[in-house]
């Protein structure tokens, strides 16, 4: 089973085994990764599951669709390597994928 690496706030690294097909957001939520709010539950409607993807993994991901692109404007400090983790589906090729949780999620939300 692929492993996904979360870098939590404060820098702690957590490796989580990831069944193929689930999203990185779902993994984070089920394993209680701090700072992934995922209010809309994966509908690409809220931008509260924002992560920074380690640069070496970026090109292995499916590119952002328009909806995700637009939603990221709602995220806290979006960068070139920003993704909504609900849009990343775990696959064998992503074994070892490393994502970092931002300091905050949505600009309009309280920090969780």
């Amino acid at each position: 089973m692929p492993l996904i690496v979360f870098v939590e706030r404060g820098g702690a690294r957590r490796e989580v085994p990831a069944p193929e097909g689930v999203t990185v957001m779902e993994l984070a939520r089920q394993h209680g990764i701090d700072g992934i709010v995922a209010q809309c539950g994966g509908a690409c409607a809220c931008a509260t599951c924002h992560v920074y993807v380690a640069p070496q993994w970026l090109e292995k991901l499916e590119p952002r669709e328009d909806m995700e692109e637009g939603m990221l404007e709602n995220a806290w400090e979006p960068r070139a390597n920003s993704r909504l983790s609900c849009q990343i589906h775990v696959a064998a090729a992503l074994d070892g994928l490393e994502v970092t949780v931002p300091e905050r999620q949505n600009l309009l939300e309280d920090d969780q």
Partner: peptide
């Protein structure tokens, strides 16, 4: 409708 940018901007403007 299929326009996330308007939605995102509107959240702030309405608040």
């Amino acid at each position: 409708i299929n326009h996330p940018k308007d939605y995102v901007a509107a959240r702030k403007l309405i608040a």
